[in-house]
């Protein structure tokens, strides 16, 4: 049996998923199930944990630090605004932090069997997407309770999360590959991801950042999705199509480059595992 090589065409990142859909889905389902095995509340934790974290952050940033959004007059929708940012951040952080140790954890697949190693980063991504879907459900429900019925533009939410998923996959392929050769990468990524939570406009509006630093926010891969998700789900505005389009193109390019890098370097994995 031979592993199908995704090649170097622009569609390669999508093909890695489409060709191996059943395999990826099975691995992801196993991972999600393993997380809640042996616990009393089981999958309820998937809903409870984000809700509890939202309570903490709304308290700290809404009550203690009294962060304010310029777009809104009152603080009623603050938790929803915050949560839109957190949904994006969690989706990114779950796959990015797992990536550096991913291949080593699955060393059996690299050494023994004929296995398309390049699908491995899809597994945490699917589990992250599963959690993001739950998060989106909570977000819409919260918007309904705190502000009012969800706007029609809510339907566009997947259009904003999918480019983020693609961007994250590109980064995950690079991290997964480098993580095989450089053990420190796990530490670096841990620091970077925790820093990104505060260096992206999640807890504060971009306008709160002093002018001189504001342009740096654009370097965070989270800034565009966070702001656009807020626009469509919370404020009921159409997304900024130019920003979203450019971001999607960039995400595609990053995914393609990440996958190509991974495929180029994966020959050496068996030696370092």
């Amino acid at each position: 049996m031979k592993i199908r090589h995704p090649g170097w065409l622009p569609l390669a990142p999508f093909n890695t998923f489409l060709w191996h859909r059943p395999l990826i889905l099975r691995l992801a389902a196993r991972e999600v199930a393993a997380r809640y095995r042996g616990s009393l509340m089981g999958a309820l934790w998937a809903v409870a944990v984000p809700l509890m974290m939202l309570t903490v952050y709304s308290f700290v940033f809404g009550v203690v630090f009294r962060a304010r959004w310029s777009g809104t007059s009152d603080a009623k929708d603050f938790p929803v605004v915050l949560f839109a940012g957190l949904v994006c951040f969690w989706m990114f952080s779950e796959s990015a932090t797992r990536a550096p140790s991913l291949i080593r954890e699955n060393a059996v697949y690299v050494k023994k069997i004929v296995f398309p190693v390049y699908v491995l980063p899809w597994v945490p991504m699917l589990s992250a997407l599963f959690n993001a879907a739950i998060g989106l459900g909570i977000l819409v429900a919260g918007r309904w309770v705190l502000v009012g019925p969800p706007p029609v533009t809510t339907l566009l939410a997947p259009l904003i999360l999918l480019p983020l998923a693609l961007m994250t996959m590109g980064i995950a392929w690079v991290f997964a590959s480098i993580g095989m050769y450089v053990r420190d990468l796990g530490h670096i990524v841990g620091v970077l991801v925790s820093a990104m939570m505060f260096l992206s406009p999640i807890f504060y509006p971009p306008e709160a950042v002093p002018e001189a630093f504001r342009q740096f926010l654009q370097f965070s891969p989270l800034t565009v999705p966070v702001e656009q998700l807020r626009a469509v789900v919370v404020w009921g505005n159409a997304p900024d199509w130019t920003a979203l389009g450019l971001y999607s193109l960039a995400a595609w390019a990053v995914a393609w480059a990440g996958l190509s890098w991974f495929l180029k370097t994966q020959k050496g994995f068996a030696d370092v595992v």
């Binding site: 925790s194 820093a195 505060f198």
Partner: peptide
């Protein structure tokens, strides 16, 4: 590096952006 990086981030965000 790990805790120091977080302290640096907190220092920037909470003194510049949120103004504690």
């Amino acid at each position: 590096l790990n805790p120091l990086a977080m302290i640096a981030v907190y220092a920037v965000i909470f003194s510049q952006v949120v103004s504690v």
